[in-house]
């Protein structure tokens, strides 16, 4: 479990904070998506949670241990998978995993066995004799996941890990995250690919200019944002548009009218059909639509909003 409370990070006095008063909780067995535009503060937040950089204010608890004051104890429960993994270029996978394992107090023989298991699991065992600099980006990411799993942590942080992966890689990653969730691990996933967040995340935190502007529950995902009514008439005219103004803001396009900013509840949309019918219009179809995550996200964090 990761608890972030009132997190602040200011890199320079001359610049606004990269993260301000950010509070989040990522529970065990939960996948928390983390969405925001470039420079919104996603990576900064994750690097603070991992203990790579220090917060200017606030607190991060990992399994109840403070990442600043109890770094060693807290880091035992953290697995970090960065966007661009950076390892010793001349290092070999097994040796490096064994080195990392030493920090968790894993004996060398056990570490070697574990390294072999993980490298086979992520399909890079055959490349174990090659230096890491010769790995492809996808292989580096898979090695990075193996490295994150060496200490068998309870919490995983994926920072834009899906970037640059092919569709198969994305699917494997999605399956892997879901398997972590099943094991009761807490997963914090930052990504630009909102559809993927929609697919796997239990909640999605949306960050704008260092602040959380909204945490969307999975149950809300299907009903995000503004409701609109799409009406197709046999013959639409200006009178029909005038008629519909009593229910909201109609927009006419041929025989199709989209009614936005409804001033009636969603369960009273039938009144629209009723009014059109009484005025003598033949209604071909009528349907209600809600905004998707992307629209909702852009509405929340888009420029000027």
């Amino acid at each position: 479990m990761i608890q972030i409370t009132d997190l602040i990070k200011q890199y320079s006095r001359n610049q606004p904070p990269a993260v301000r008063n950010l509070s989040l909780e990522i529970n065990d067995g939960e996948i928390m998506g983390f969405a925001g535009l470039n420079g919104a503060g996603k990576t900064t937040t994750i690097r603070i949670v991992c203990g790579i950089i220090f917060p200017t204010g606030g607190k991060v608890l990992v399994n109840g241990k403070d990442i600043v004051k109890e770094k060693v104890a807290a880091s035992k429960h953290i697995g970090w998978v960065p966007e661009l993994p950076n390892f010793e270029p001349t290092g070999k996978s097994v040796q490096l995993l064994k080195y990392y394992a030493g920090f968790y107090g894993i004996p060398p023989k056990e570490a070697e066995t574990k390294a072999e298991t993980l490298l086979k699991k992520f399909n890079i065992w055959d490349a174990r004799k090659r230096p890491l600099k010769d790995y492809s980006q996808g292989m580096k990411k898979r090695f990075s996941i193996a490295a994150a799993m060496m200490g068998d942590p309870d919490n995983f942080l994926f920072d834009e890990t899906l970037n640059g992966l092919d569709p198969e890689g994305v699917k494997n990653m999605r399956d892997f995250m879901l398997s972590l969730k099943k094991e009761g691990k807490a997963v914090f996933l930052s990504s630009h690919i909102l559809s993927e967040l929609e697919n796997v995340a239990d909640r999605i935190a949306i960050i704008k200019r260092g602040e959380i502007v909204k945490v969307v529950e999975r149950s809300e995902l299907s009903n995000l944002g503004e409701l609109s009514v799409k009406i197709v008439l046999q013959k639409a005219d200006d009178n029909a548009v005038s008629l519909l103004q009593q229910f909201g803001k109609p927009e006419n396009s041929g025989n199709e009218i989209t009614l936005r900013s409804l001033n009636i509840p969603s369960d009273e949309v039938y009144k629209v059909t009723e009014a059109l019918f009484k005025a003598g219009y033949r209604v071909i179809s009528i349907s209600t639509e809600s905004e998707g995550l992307e629209d909702y996200f852009l509405e929340l964090v888009g420029s000027g909003k």
Binding site: S75, F87, Y100, F103
Partner: peptide
């Protein structure tokens, strides 16, 4: 070299300060 290249970050995320 490790600090400037970022290699040290992959170590710092381990249980060490």
């Amino acid at each position: 070299k490790d600090k400037a290249s970022g290699v040290l970050e992959s170590i710092i995320t381990r249980p060490v300060t």
